[in-house]
């Protein structure tokens, strides 16, 4: 089993790079004939990743969420998998390379530094923690995909405004579609983050008797939640359209990424496990 895990640890970044390369070729080359092949390869990569995550969980007797690099591989998987589902549902295939780039980065870093950890803190074996982290990671994947679509929206918006009919104009879906995809992934991300926060709040008092609601991680998470929540309400009430909502979403993403890094910057946070 250990050999298989080590083998998959090498194979996965290669598979992600190959998948990413296919998406790049399909994006830049007319009539490349890769439209269906790239989707199949992405599916195979995601399936292989499932086996890898299961194998790690079984072999090391804990879900792969105990170190930064285990988190990275789960994040790579959840981004790729979420995108795969989004592509399947919407049949918009032009944005894949921008999203899969994140999966490639996370998986390459993870594969380079990940270690075989058998001994971990008892708190990290908790099932509630597993649900909390996995829902948070899926939530972060959602807001990452939303941010990428938001960024693409802004680029396409600028191109159309300036009458620059480049490859971006030719390949990306319409502004309305990008906005819709960004908003749908944002809603999904927001709901999963809400779930993660809820699990965290329920589980927190039992797991950490010395916790504080003034912890910087909790404050920044609450801020992220409020920014996204406000953005969603404004969008749903029809007050703002397009670009303004996208800027809101991007601002939320930047705060969320900052919040994600807080646990490492402020060592005093109870949220620092590694």
């Amino acid at each position: 089993m250990l050999d298989a895990i080590h083998g998959l640890n090498i194979a996965l970044p290669v598979m992600y790079i190959v998948t990413f390369a296919l998406y790049v070729i399909a994006f830049f080359k007319d009539n490349s004939g890769l439209e269906n092949i790239k989707r199949v390869i992405l599916f195979l990569t995601c399936t292989t990743h499932v086996f890898y995550l299961l194998a790690r969980t079984i072999e090391f007797n804990h879900p792969p969420i105990t170190t930064k690099f285990e988190i990275f591989t789960v994040l790579a998987f959840s981004i790729a998998c979420s995108y795969f589902l989004l592509e399947l549902v919407t049949d918009n295939r032009g944005t894949g390379l921008f999203i899969l780039l994140f999966s490639v980065l996370f998986q390459v870093i993870s594969s380079l530094f990940i270690q075989d950890l058998i001994e971990v803190r008892e708190v990290l074996r908790n099932r509630m923690l597993g649900m909390h982290v996995i829902s948070a990671l899926l939530g972060y994947s959602g807001i990452t995909i939303s941010a990428v679509h938001g960024l693409l929206f802004l680029i396409l918006y600028k191109d159309i405004k300036l009458n620059k009919f480049s490859i971006i104009f030719n390949r990306l879906p319409s502004l309305e579609t990008l906005e819709k995809m960004s908003f749908i992934s944002l809603i999904i991300g927001f709901l999963l983050l809400t779930l993660s926060i809820s699990i965290g709040i329920i589980w927190l008092p039992g797991a950490f008797p010395d916790y504080s609601f003034l912890d910087p991680k909790l404050i920044s998470t609450a801020l992220v939640w409020l920014v996204y929540g406000t953005g969603i309400i404004i969008k749903l009430s029809g007050i703002w359209y397009g670009k303004k909502v996208i800027w809101f979403s991007l601002a939320g993403f930047i705060i969320a990424m900052f919040s994600l890094m807080l646990s490492n910057i402020f060592a005093s946070s109870f949220h620092s496990f590694y």
Partner: peptide, 9 residues
């Protein structure tokens, strides 16, 4: 073609 790049439905 430009209109289709702005609106989806």
């Amino acid at each position: 073609q430009v209109i289709e790049k702005i609106f989806a439905n």
